[in-house]
Design a protein around this nucleic acid. Structure first.
Lengths: 339, 339
DNA sequence: GTGCTCAATGCAATCGTTTGCATTACTGGA
DNA sequence: TCCAGTAATGCAAACGATTGCATTGAGCAC
């Protein structure tokens, strides 16, 4: 690895001249620049980003902290984030945190002192349990934005209108003639699941459908999905509704399999609607009718927000960017015939 | 952000003393150490990793270059790699490269000059097209290991015996009484798919089943999966075999859907076996019988190999670590009754 | 009291850049 | 011919840590 010094020696000029020549600084003569560039090429000079960062306190790098890379949601988001980051000249580092607060802390401190310019995170904020890593970043006034999660400390965030989305799901089912709608709930320490639950109840109310706790089946026990067992029990005890709204696509997919195992046909006997529109949801059969979150746009928006923070540290933007959901009609919901 | 200097000033000692005290160096008196630690705590000192790396030329960080994070294979590998890396005291950075040579080059140069200690990659080596980024790393004698891909320049690699795996798939189908076995091929510029194809042919031969090109259906056109169209055409023209061996699970999943759409029941009318054992393969219905690659162990082994390289730069290990596959019996292959 | 050892601490160079300021060299106008 | 003005270049101080070597001073044996 050759350094500026090596190039300078070979070119018979000072280090600063080389530095400026390669940065295409206007104070250096054209022929000198050309000669230096040539020598740098010959010596295969490549800048030491560490040294540069030490001086400039920046790195043109963003980090995206992912709670669980095996959750199908995040890879899609990561791709969107990566593409937009690159479009704006930044590199992206991905870190899988397993939602472990200690690990997040470690990553954040490490990356921050490596001059990562800003952070994106989709961390699952558990109720009550405040996230130390984020509080720390905010206390330093470090650029960061929360993606798919609303966040405390009024961090900028890019989210989806979960309540309205869930309401749309209910609207859609009702429009297809369903009035007996079971809700499979997400894990209850995630705010986004509570919002979807609220939207479900709101939807029922709007259509004057009486709500009862019986209508809600738990989809999670802690971080474990238990839809399959729950659904099996309910069905075996004869309580199978005509329509089921799942708080997320993974829940819906599990349910689809359970229904298949129970020899219930979808959508003829039971209609199922999900929430997310993961890429796999389309290839299941019946393909899943679901509520789409515009991942790609959201990822891009989050990066734009973050870069805006980095480049204008003083200016504050809107704290929350809220995206709209959309019903994606596929095969898992039986359509009303009159329609 | 306070620095060593700040702590030193407050403690009334020199910077070196602070540095040594915090590193628990034996040349520093116990009471001094204690006092310095206390002050460091008060000032919330946290080391500047950049500056440290500039000096030590290391960072206790590994990077894993992933070709396509949306491919279900890689998140699983990433988790294995991450866990093992952490167990050995290293952090892991993930980079999605879309298999773009320029992008890989950029990431490698950036990370390498940020003193990432070693690289893992699962890059899809296209035939002929040599990968510049890897050649570059090798020329620097930089620690790196290839995961799931055999690699040129005799880079250490952790791979699976694809040929034998494919042979096992054929063996299994034959043992279940199938002798008409179609192979759905992977994209032909990936060596691993060629090996699976070779294993398929070897398997046929072993059981004295005549091979013909008719038996091979293309699964890819470039990087695009085209199984669905191909299978549909073949089936509509009346050529539906009793058993199909897909070169990968994603192909098998696509096929399962196509068969479902064509109203062919699996495994009653057609048996399907895949290769990979992705996590989703289990939740499809019928659940997919497939050839398992031990992702988790492979990811761990790759990290161990890499760290061995980092810590003993001189010693050379075995260039290739070859793992064994295993048949995972689920529902998509009809079992022979006599068995 | 002198000399010696050894533990504790400080000095200063170093890593590879960037950058404000100083310096040099060249140009053209008077 | 001389000077001002500007373009081109170099010097040296940062950035924040690590570390070999020098220094200090206390303790101890003689």
């Amino acid at each position: 690895m050759s350094t500026l010094k090596d190039v300078a020696k070979r070119a018979g000029v000072s280090i600063s001249t080389v530095s400026r020549a390669l940065a295409d600084n206007s104070h250096i003569g054209e022929k000198t620049k050309e000669r230096i560039r040539q020598i740098a090429d010959e010596l295969e000079y490549s800048p030491n980003y560490i040294a540069r960062s030490l001086k400039t306190k920046g790195s043109m790098t963003l980090a995206y902290l992912i709670p669980d890379i095996e959750n199908l949601l995040y890879p899609s988001l990561a791709v969107a984030v990566e593409k937009q980051a690159r479009a704006l000249g930044y590199s992206l580092l991905l870190c899988n945190t397993f939602d472990d607060p200690d690990l997040m802390n470690k990553y954040v401190r490490q990356l921050q002192s490596r001059f990562v310019d800003g952070f994106l995170f989709s961390t699952s904020l558990r109720k009550g349990l405040n996230n130390e890593a984020i509080t720390y970043l905010k206390s330093l006034n470090y650029p960061c934005v929360s993606l798919m999660r609303n966040s405390p400390d009024n961090t900028d965030s890019v989210i989806v209108d979960n309540t309205l989305g869930a309401e749309k799901a209910v609207d859609f089912l009702v429009a297809q003639g369903h009035r007996e709608i079971v809700f499979i709930a997400g894990s209850d320490n995630l705010e986004l699941y509570q919002e979807r639950f609220a939207g479900y109840k709101k939807g029922l109310k709007k259509h004057s459908i009486p709500y009862s706790d019986e209508l809600v089946w738990p989809g999670f026990k802690g971080t474990q999905r238990i839809v399959s067992q729950v659904a099996k029990e309910k069905i075996e005890s004869g309580k199978c509704p005509k329509a089921i709204f799942c708080a997320s696509d993974p829940l819906a997919i599990d349910l689809l399999k359970t229904l298949h195992d129970c020899k219930l046909s979808v959508p003829e006997q039971v209609s199922v609607i999900g929430f997310d529109n993961l890429r796999v949801s389309e290839i299941f059969y019946p393909s899943l009718t679901t509520i789409e979150q515009p991942f790609f746009e959201m990822g891009k928006a989050a990066v734009k927000l973050l870069v805006a923070q980095i480049e204008n540290p003083n200016k504050r933007n809107e704290p929350n960017l809220i995206f709209e959901t959309k019903v994606i009609v596929r095969e898992s919901v039986k359509l009303s015939e009159v329609k």
